[in-house]
Design a protein around this nucleic acid. Structure first.
Lengths: 211, 211
DNA sequence: GTCTATACATCGATAGAC
DNA sequence: GTCTATCGATGTATAGAC
Protein backbone atom coordinates (compact mmCIF):
# COMPACT_ATOMS: atom_id res chain seq x y z
CA UNK A 1 0.00 0.00 0.00
CA UNK A 2 2.52 2.56 1.07
CA UNK A 3 5.60 3.34 -1.00
CA UNK A 4 8.65 1.81 0.64
CA UNK A 5 11.22 4.19 2.03
CA UNK A 6 13.77 2.90 -0.42
CA UNK A 7 11.80 4.75 -3.11
CA UNK A 8 12.98 8.09 -1.68
CA UNK A 9 14.87 9.66 -4.58
CA UNK A 10 18.58 10.12 -4.33
CA UNK A 11 20.43 13.39 -4.76
CA UNK A 12 19.15 15.49 -7.62
CA UNK A 13 21.94 18.03 -7.87
CA UNK A 14 25.56 17.17 -8.42
CA UNK A 15 27.69 15.73 -5.68
CA UNK A 16 29.10 18.68 -3.70
CA UNK A 17 32.53 17.10 -3.78
CA UNK A 18 32.53 17.34 -7.56
CA UNK A 19 31.69 21.04 -7.64
CA UNK A 20 34.40 23.52 -8.62
CA UNK A 21 35.27 26.26 -6.17
CA UNK A 22 33.58 28.88 -8.35
CA UNK A 23 30.41 26.84 -8.71
CA UNK A 24 30.22 26.29 -4.97
CA UNK A 25 30.76 30.00 -4.34
CA UNK A 26 28.00 30.88 -6.78
CA UNK A 27 25.59 28.42 -5.18
CA UNK A 28 26.36 29.68 -1.70
CA UNK A 29 26.04 33.33 -2.66
CA UNK A 30 22.83 32.73 -4.58
CA UNK A 31 21.35 30.74 -1.71
CA UNK A 32 22.11 33.52 0.72
CA UNK A 33 20.63 36.23 -1.49
CA UNK A 34 17.56 34.30 -2.62
CA UNK A 35 16.68 33.37 0.95
CA UNK A 36 17.16 36.93 2.14
CA UNK A 37 15.37 38.81 -0.65
CA UNK A 38 13.27 36.36 -2.67
CA UNK A 39 13.48 35.64 -6.37
CA UNK A 40 12.71 38.88 -8.19
CA UNK A 41 14.36 41.14 -5.65
CA UNK A 42 17.62 39.25 -5.98
CA UNK A 43 19.59 40.57 -8.94
CA UNK A 44 22.34 38.71 -10.69
CA UNK A 45 24.64 41.56 -9.70
CA UNK A 46 23.91 40.94 -6.02
CA UNK A 47 24.58 37.24 -6.45
CA UNK A 48 27.84 37.97 -8.27
CA UNK A 49 28.93 40.28 -5.47
CA UNK A 50 27.94 37.81 -2.77
CA UNK A 51 29.74 35.00 -4.57
CA UNK A 52 32.84 37.07 -5.30
CA UNK A 53 32.71 36.40 -9.02
CA UNK A 54 31.66 38.36 -12.07
CA UNK A 55 28.18 38.16 -13.50
CA UNK A 56 29.46 36.58 -16.71
CA UNK A 57 30.97 33.74 -14.71
CA UNK A 58 27.58 32.88 -13.32
CA UNK A 59 26.18 32.62 -16.84
CA UNK A 60 28.98 30.28 -17.82
CA UNK A 61 27.87 27.88 -15.05
CA UNK A 62 24.10 28.31 -15.20
CA UNK A 63 21.79 28.85 -18.12
CA UNK A 64 19.90 31.77 -16.61
CA UNK A 65 18.51 33.14 -13.35
CA UNK A 66 15.63 30.67 -13.21
CA UNK A 67 18.02 27.76 -13.68
CA UNK A 68 20.20 28.95 -10.83
CA UNK A 69 17.17 29.45 -8.63
CA UNK A 70 15.76 25.98 -9.14
CA UNK A 71 19.21 24.53 -8.48
CA UNK A 72 19.25 26.38 -5.16
CA UNK A 73 15.84 25.13 -4.17
CA UNK A 74 16.75 21.53 -4.94
CA UNK A 75 19.94 21.94 -2.97
CA UNK A 76 18.03 23.37 0.00
CA UNK A 77 15.41 20.66 -0.14
CA UNK A 78 18.13 18.08 0.27
CA UNK A 79 19.83 20.00 3.03
CA UNK A 80 16.62 20.70 4.91
CA UNK A 81 15.44 17.21 4.19
CA UNK A 82 18.19 15.79 6.29
CA UNK A 83 17.96 18.36 9.10
CA UNK A 84 14.24 18.98 9.36
CA UNK A 85 13.54 15.31 9.63
CA UNK A 86 15.53 12.41 8.30
CA UNK A 87 13.50 9.21 7.89
CA UNK A 88 16.74 7.25 7.68
CA UNK A 89 17.24 8.36 11.27
CA UNK A 90 14.94 5.47 12.07
CA UNK A 91 15.82 5.09 15.73
CA UNK A 92 14.09 8.44 16.39
CA UNK A 93 10.83 6.71 15.53
CA UNK A 94 11.04 3.84 17.96
CA UNK A 95 9.66 3.64 21.44
CA UNK A 96 6.78 4.84 23.51
CA UNK A 97 4.42 7.08 21.45
CA UNK A 98 4.08 10.01 23.85
CA UNK A 99 7.86 10.24 24.15
CA UNK A 100 8.52 9.80 20.44
CA UNK A 101 5.91 12.35 19.36
CA UNK A 102 7.10 14.89 21.89
CA UNK A 103 10.68 14.46 20.73
CA UNK A 104 9.64 14.74 17.07
CA UNK A 105 7.50 17.87 17.44
CA UNK A 106 10.10 19.47 19.67
CA UNK A 107 12.73 18.87 17.02
CA UNK A 108 10.54 20.44 14.34
CA UNK A 109 9.85 23.55 16.38
CA UNK A 110 13.42 23.97 17.52
CA UNK A 111 14.86 23.75 14.04
CA UNK A 112 12.32 26.22 12.68
CA UNK A 113 13.35 28.72 15.34
CA UNK A 114 17.10 28.13 15.33
CA UNK A 115 17.63 27.88 11.60
CA UNK A 116 16.19 31.11 10.28
CA UNK A 117 16.71 29.76 6.78
CA UNK A 118 13.89 27.28 7.28
CA UNK A 119 11.14 29.89 7.39
CA UNK A 120 12.67 31.75 4.47
CA UNK A 121 12.81 28.49 2.55
CA UNK A 122 9.14 27.76 3.23
CA UNK A 123 8.28 31.30 2.23
CA UNK A 124 10.15 30.86 -1.03
CA UNK A 125 8.59 27.48 -1.84
CA UNK A 126 5.06 28.74 -1.30
CA UNK A 127 5.52 32.24 -2.64
CA UNK A 128 7.24 31.20 -5.86
CA UNK A 129 5.27 28.02 -6.54
CA UNK A 130 3.08 30.08 -8.86
CA UNK A 131 5.95 31.31 -10.99
CA UNK A 132 7.83 27.99 -10.74
CA UNK A 133 5.26 25.18 -10.59
CA UNK A 134 8.01 22.54 -10.68
CA UNK A 135 9.53 24.09 -7.58
CA UNK A 136 7.27 22.18 -5.23
CA UNK A 137 8.57 18.82 -6.39
CA UNK A 138 11.87 18.81 -4.45
CA UNK A 139 10.02 19.95 -1.34
CA UNK A 140 7.41 17.21 -1.55
CA UNK A 141 9.78 14.44 -2.61
CA UNK A 142 12.56 15.27 -0.16
CA UNK A 143 10.74 16.73 2.83
CA UNK A 144 6.98 16.28 3.00
CA UNK A 145 6.72 12.79 1.53
CA UNK A 146 9.52 11.15 3.58
CA UNK A 147 8.21 12.78 6.74
CA UNK A 148 4.63 11.68 6.23
CA UNK A 149 5.61 8.17 5.18
CA UNK A 150 8.03 7.60 8.04
CA UNK A 151 5.65 8.99 10.64
CA UNK A 152 2.63 7.08 9.34
CA UNK A 153 4.69 3.88 9.30
CA UNK A 154 5.60 4.45 12.93
CA UNK A 155 2.02 5.27 13.92
CA UNK A 156 0.84 2.16 12.12
CA UNK A 157 3.40 0.00 13.92
CA UNK A 158 2.11 1.07 17.33
CA UNK A 159 -1.01 -1.05 17.45
CA UNK A 160 -1.97 0.19 20.89
CA UNK A 161 -2.85 3.55 19.26
CA UNK A 162 -5.57 1.78 17.27
CA UNK A 163 -5.47 4.44 14.54
CA UNK A 164 -7.87 3.87 11.68
CA UNK A 165 -5.86 6.08 9.33
CA UNK A 166 -2.17 6.54 10.30
CA UNK A 167 -1.31 8.62 7.23
CA UNK A 168 -4.13 11.10 7.80
CA UNK A 169 -3.01 11.34 11.43
CA UNK A 170 0.58 11.93 10.36
CA UNK A 171 -0.60 14.74 8.08
CA UNK A 172 -2.54 16.29 10.94
CA UNK A 173 0.59 16.36 13.08
CA UNK A 174 2.65 17.89 10.29
CA UNK A 175 -0.05 20.41 9.34
CA UNK A 176 -0.57 21.47 12.93
CA UNK A 177 3.13 22.10 13.46
CA UNK A 178 3.83 23.78 10.12
CA UNK A 179 0.82 26.08 10.31
CA UNK A 180 1.66 26.90 13.92
CA UNK A 181 5.17 27.88 12.90
CA UNK A 182 3.87 29.88 9.95
CA UNK A 183 1.28 31.74 12.00
CA UNK A 184 3.47 32.45 15.02
CA UNK A 185 6.90 32.99 13.47
CA UNK A 186 6.38 34.04 9.85
CA UNK A 187 3.13 36.00 10.16
CA UNK A 188 3.90 37.57 13.54
CA UNK A 189 1.06 35.79 15.28
CA UNK A 190 3.33 35.48 18.31
CA UNK A 191 2.33 38.98 19.35
CA UNK A 192 -1.16 39.23 17.90
CA UNK A 193 -2.42 35.75 18.76
CA UNK A 194 -0.16 34.27 21.46
CA UNK A 195 0.05 30.52 21.96
CA UNK A 196 2.84 28.50 23.49
CA UNK A 197 4.34 25.57 21.56
CA UNK A 198 4.03 23.48 24.72
CA UNK A 199 0.25 23.82 24.74
CA UNK A 200 0.07 22.93 21.06
CA UNK A 201 2.24 19.85 21.47
CA UNK A 202 0.55 18.65 24.67
CA UNK A 203 -2.85 18.91 23.06
CA UNK A 204 -1.73 17.29 19.83
CA UNK A 205 -0.35 14.28 21.70
CA UNK A 206 -3.54 14.01 23.76
CA UNK A 207 -5.55 13.92 20.53
CA UNK A 208 -3.43 11.18 18.97
CA UNK A 209 -2.57 9.00 21.96
CA UNK A 210 -5.62 7.61 23.82
CA UNK A 211 -5.68 8.20 27.56
CA UNK B 1 -10.10 35.11 29.14
CA UNK B 2 -10.97 35.10 25.49
CA UNK B 3 -11.50 38.29 23.55
CA UNK B 4 -15.21 38.74 22.86
CA UNK B 5 -16.29 38.50 19.25
CA UNK B 6 -17.45 42.09 19.32
CA UNK B 7 -13.76 43.04 19.46
CA UNK B 8 -13.31 41.90 15.87
CA UNK B 9 -12.09 45.05 14.11
CA UNK B 10 -14.35 46.75 11.64
CA UNK B 11 -13.47 47.63 8.07
CA UNK B 12 -9.98 49.00 7.62
CA UNK B 13 -10.27 50.42 4.12
CA UNK B 14 -12.79 52.97 3.06
CA UNK B 15 -16.41 52.09 2.63
CA UNK B 16 -16.81 50.74 -0.91
CA UNK B 17 -19.86 52.94 -1.41
CA UNK B 18 -17.71 56.01 -0.91
CA UNK B 19 -15.15 55.03 -3.52
CA UNK B 20 -15.11 56.88 -6.82
CA UNK B 21 -15.53 54.86 -10.00
CA UNK B 22 -11.87 55.32 -10.89
CA UNK B 23 -10.67 54.24 -7.47
CA UNK B 24 -12.82 51.13 -7.57
CA UNK B 25 -11.56 50.30 -11.05
CA UNK B 26 -7.96 50.68 -9.90
CA UNK B 27 -8.53 48.47 -6.87
CA UNK B 28 -10.24 45.79 -8.94
CA UNK B 29 -7.58 45.84 -11.64
CA UNK B 30 -4.77 45.79 -9.13
CA UNK B 31 -6.37 42.94 -7.20
CA UNK B 32 -6.70 40.88 -10.35
CA UNK B 33 -3.09 41.47 -11.43
CA UNK B 34 -1.50 41.08 -8.01
CA UNK B 35 -3.31 37.80 -7.41
CA UNK B 36 -2.38 36.50 -10.84
CA UNK B 37 1.29 37.52 -10.97
CA UNK B 38 2.44 38.46 -7.47
CA UNK B 39 3.90 41.76 -6.32
CA UNK B 40 7.09 42.34 -8.28
CA UNK B 41 5.85 40.75 -11.48
CA UNK B 42 2.87 43.07 -11.56
CA UNK B 43 3.85 46.36 -13.20
CA UNK B 44 1.97 49.58 -12.78
CA UNK B 45 1.45 49.52 -16.54
CA UNK B 46 -0.39 46.21 -16.28
CA UNK B 47 -2.55 47.54 -13.47
CA UNK B 48 -3.33 50.67 -15.45
CA UNK B 49 -4.33 48.58 -18.47
CA UNK B 50 -6.44 46.22 -16.37
CA UNK B 51 -8.15 49.13 -14.63
CA UNK B 52 -8.68 51.06 -17.84
CA UNK B 53 -6.98 54.17 -16.57
CA UNK B 54 -3.61 55.82 -17.12
CA UNK B 55 -0.66 55.16 -14.89
CA UNK B 56 -0.63 58.77 -13.67
CA UNK B 57 -4.20 58.39 -12.45
CA UNK B 58 -3.14 55.55 -10.18
CA UNK B 59 -0.47 57.73 -8.62
CA UNK B 60 -3.04 60.43 -7.95
CA UNK B 61 -5.05 57.94 -5.88
CA UNK B 62 -2.27 55.96 -4.23
CA UNK B 63 1.10 57.03 -2.95
CA UNK B 64 3.10 54.28 -4.65
CA UNK B 65 3.00 50.63 -5.64
CA UNK B 66 3.49 49.37 -2.10
CA UNK B 67 0.64 51.54 -0.84
CA UNK B 68 -1.68 50.15 -3.49
CA UNK B 69 -0.60 46.61 -2.70
CA UNK B 70 -1.24 46.84 1.03
CA UNK B 71 -4.65 48.39 0.31
CA UNK B 72 -5.45 45.38 -1.87
CA UNK B 73 -4.41 42.91 0.79
CA UNK B 74 -6.49 44.62 3.45
CA UNK B 75 -9.44 44.64 1.09
CA UNK B 76 -9.00 40.93 0.35
CA UNK B 77 -8.63 40.04 4.01
CA UNK B 78 -12.04 41.57 4.64
CA UNK B 79 -13.59 39.89 1.66
CA UNK B 80 -12.09 36.49 2.38
CA UNK B 81 -12.81 36.98 6.04
CA UNK B 82 -16.52 36.90 5.35
CA UNK B 83 -16.42 34.09 2.79
CA UNK B 84 -13.78 31.78 4.23
CA UNK B 85 -15.47 31.74 7.57
CA UNK B 86 -17.64 34.37 9.16
CA UNK B 87 -17.81 34.08 12.96
CA UNK B 88 -20.89 36.33 12.92
CA UNK B 89 -22.49 33.45 11.08
CA UNK B 90 -22.92 31.97 14.53
CA UNK B 91 -25.66 29.47 13.72
CA UNK B 92 -23.08 27.51 11.73
CA UNK B 93 -21.42 26.71 15.04
CA UNK B 94 -24.37 25.26 16.86
CA UNK B 95 -25.41 21.65 17.08
CA UNK B 96 -23.94 18.19 17.21
CA UNK B 97 -20.10 18.31 16.99
CA UNK B 98 -19.56 15.67 14.29
CA UNK B 99 -22.08 17.43 12.05
CA UNK B 100 -20.80 20.93 12.78
CA UNK B 101 -17.16 20.03 12.25
CA UNK B 102 -17.90 18.18 9.02
CA UNK B 103 -19.86 21.14 7.71
CA UNK B 104 -17.11 23.57 8.72
CA UNK B 105 -14.22 21.64 7.20
CA UNK B 106 -16.23 20.94 4.07
CA UNK B 107 -16.91 24.65 3.68
CA UNK B 108 -13.21 25.45 4.05
CA UNK B 109 -12.14 22.92 1.44
CA UNK B 110 -14.87 23.82 -1.02
CA UNK B 111 -14.10 27.51 -0.91
CA UNK B 112 -10.41 26.89 -1.37
CA UNK B 113 -11.15 24.86 -4.49
CA UNK B 114 -13.90 26.95 -5.97
CA UNK B 115 -12.45 30.37 -5.35
CA UNK B 116 -9.07 30.18 -7.00
CA UNK B 117 -8.29 33.58 -5.51
CA UNK B 118 -8.02 32.04 -2.07
CA UNK B 119 -4.87 30.06 -2.81
CA UNK B 120 -3.34 33.02 -4.61
CA UNK B 121 -4.17 35.19 -1.63
CA UNK B 122 -2.50 32.78 0.78
CA UNK B 123 0.50 32.62 -1.50
CA UNK B 124 0.77 36.41 -1.48
CA UNK B 125 0.38 36.72 2.29
CA UNK B 126 3.09 34.19 2.99
CA UNK B 127 5.39 34.99 0.09
CA UNK B 128 5.40 38.75 0.62
CA UNK B 129 5.35 38.76 4.42
CA UNK B 130 9.12 39.16 4.28
CA UNK B 131 9.02 42.29 2.15
CA UNK B 132 5.88 43.61 3.86
CA UNK B 133 5.96 42.55 7.51
CA UNK B 134 2.79 44.51 8.28
CA UNK B 135 0.95 42.51 5.63
CA UNK B 136 0.19 39.65 7.98
CA UNK B 137 -1.86 41.83 10.30
CA UNK B 138 -5.05 42.00 8.20
CA UNK B 139 -4.88 38.25 7.66
CA UNK B 140 -4.52 37.45 11.35
CA UNK B 141 -7.01 40.02 12.59
CA UNK B 142 -9.68 39.34 9.98
CA UNK B 143 -9.27 35.68 9.16
CA UNK B 144 -7.13 33.57 11.49
CA UNK B 145 -8.07 35.20 14.79
CA UNK B 146 -11.87 35.25 14.30
CA UNK B 147 -11.80 31.68 13.04
CA UNK B 148 -9.77 30.34 15.94
CA UNK B 149 -11.74 32.28 18.52
CA UNK B 150 -15.14 31.29 17.19
CA UNK B 151 -14.21 27.64 16.81
CA UNK B 152 -12.56 27.38 20.21
CA UNK B 153 -15.61 29.01 21.78
CA UNK B 154 -17.80 26.41 20.16
CA UNK B 155 -15.53 23.54 21.18
CA UNK B 156 -15.49 24.87 24.71
CA UNK B 157 -19.27 25.08 24.80
CA UNK B 158 -19.66 21.39 23.96
CA UNK B 159 -18.81 19.95 27.34
CA UNK B 160 -19.32 16.36 26.16
CA UNK B 161 -16.07 16.74 24.15
CA UNK B 162 -14.18 17.20 27.42
CA UNK B 163 -11.39 19.10 25.69
CA UNK B 164 -8.61 20.25 27.95
CA UNK B 165 -7.51 22.97 25.52
CA UNK B 166 -10.18 24.08 23.03
CA UNK B 167 -8.02 26.78 21.42
CA UNK B 168 -5.13 24.40 20.74
CA UNK B 169 -7.65 21.95 19.28
CA UNK B 170 -9.13 24.69 17.09
CA UNK B 171 -5.64 25.52 15.82
CA UNK B 172 -5.03 21.86 15.02
CA UNK B 173 -8.18 21.76 12.92
CA UNK B 174 -7.24 24.94 11.09
CA UNK B 175 -3.63 23.90 10.59
CA UNK B 176 -4.60 20.48 9.31
CA UNK B 177 -6.98 21.92 6.74
CA UNK B 178 -4.79 24.83 5.61
CA UNK B 179 -1.65 22.70 5.24
CA UNK B 180 -3.67 20.02 3.45
CA UNK B 181 -4.92 22.61 0.97
CA UNK B 182 -1.43 24.03 0.58
CA UNK B 183 0.19 20.66 -0.01
CA UNK B 184 -2.46 19.23 -2.31
CA UNK B 185 -3.61 22.26 -4.28
CA UNK B 186 -0.81 24.83 -4.17
CA UNK B 187 2.22 22.53 -4.15
CA UNK B 188 0.76 19.91 -6.50
CA UNK B 189 0.76 17.19 -3.87
CA UNK B 190 -2.49 15.97 -5.36
CA UNK B 191 -0.50 14.03 -7.94
CA UNK B 192 2.70 13.33 -6.04
CA UNK B 193 1.22 12.47 -2.66
CA UNK B 194 -2.49 11.66 -3.12
CA UNK B 195 -4.90 11.94 -0.23
CA UNK B 196 -8.63 12.49 -0.30
CA UNK B 197 -10.16 15.34 1.71
CA UNK B 198 -12.76 12.88 3.00
CA UNK B 199 -10.09 10.78 4.70
CA UNK B 200 -8.50 13.86 6.24
CA UNK B 201 -11.81 15.17 7.57
CA UNK B 202 -13.02 11.79 8.85
CA UNK B 203 -9.79 11.24 10.72
CA UNK B 204 -9.71 14.78 12.08
CA UNK B 205 -13.23 14.42 13.50
CA UNK B 206 -12.35 11.05 15.01
CA UNK B 207 -9.38 12.64 16.76
CA UNK B 208 -11.43 15.50 18.22
CA UNK B 209 -14.74 13.81 19.00
CA UNK B 210 -14.43 10.85 21.40
CA UNK B 211 -16.08 7.64 20.27
C1' DG C 1 -8.61 64.95 -12.30
C1' DT C 2 -6.87 62.61 -16.20
C1' DC C 3 -4.10 62.05 -19.93
C1' DT C 4 0.60 61.52 -22.98
C1' DA C 5 5.28 61.57 -22.93
C1' DT C 6 9.35 60.96 -20.68
C1' DA C 7 13.10 60.95 -17.11
C1' DC C 8 15.93 57.99 -14.60
C1' DA C 9 17.32 53.65 -12.61
C1' DT C 10 17.94 48.82 -12.83
C1' DC C 11 17.51 44.43 -14.66
C1' DG C 12 18.93 40.05 -17.33
C1' DA C 13 21.96 38.67 -20.57
C1' DT C 14 25.95 39.01 -23.81
C1' DA C 15 30.13 40.61 -26.63
C1' DG C 16 34.77 40.73 -26.75
C1' DA C 17 39.45 41.18 -24.53
C1' DC C 18 42.60 38.47 -21.96
C1' DG D 1 37.26 30.25 -17.87
C1' DT D 2 36.97 34.78 -16.18
C1' DC D 3 36.76 39.41 -16.55
C1' DT D 4 34.99 44.56 -17.96
C1' DA D 5 31.89 47.04 -20.45
C1' DT D 6 27.62 47.47 -22.46
C1' DC D 7 23.11 46.57 -24.91
C1' DG D 8 18.18 46.45 -25.04
C1' DA D 9 14.20 46.02 -22.41
C1' DT D 10 11.47 47.19 -18.69
C1' DG D 11 10.40 49.15 -14.28
C1' DT D 12 8.71 53.14 -11.08
C1' DA D 13 7.52 57.59 -10.84
C1' DT D 14 6.69 62.32 -12.52
C1' DA D 15 6.31 66.69 -15.58
C1' DG D 16 3.38 69.22 -18.16
C1' DA D 17 -0.67 69.76 -21.40
C1' DC D 18 -5.60 69.70 -21.26
Amino acid sequence: MRTPLSAVPKSIVSDPKKLSAKTAAILDGAMQEFLAHGYTDTSMDRIAAAAGVSKATIYSHFQDKADLFTAIIQRLAEHKFSTFFDPRDAHALQGEPRLVLRQLTGKMYEQALQDTQFCEFMRLIIGESGRFPELAKPYIENIAKPFIQALSAYLESRHELRLKDPEATARTLMGTMIYFIMLQEMLHGREMLPMSPERMVDNLIDLIVPK
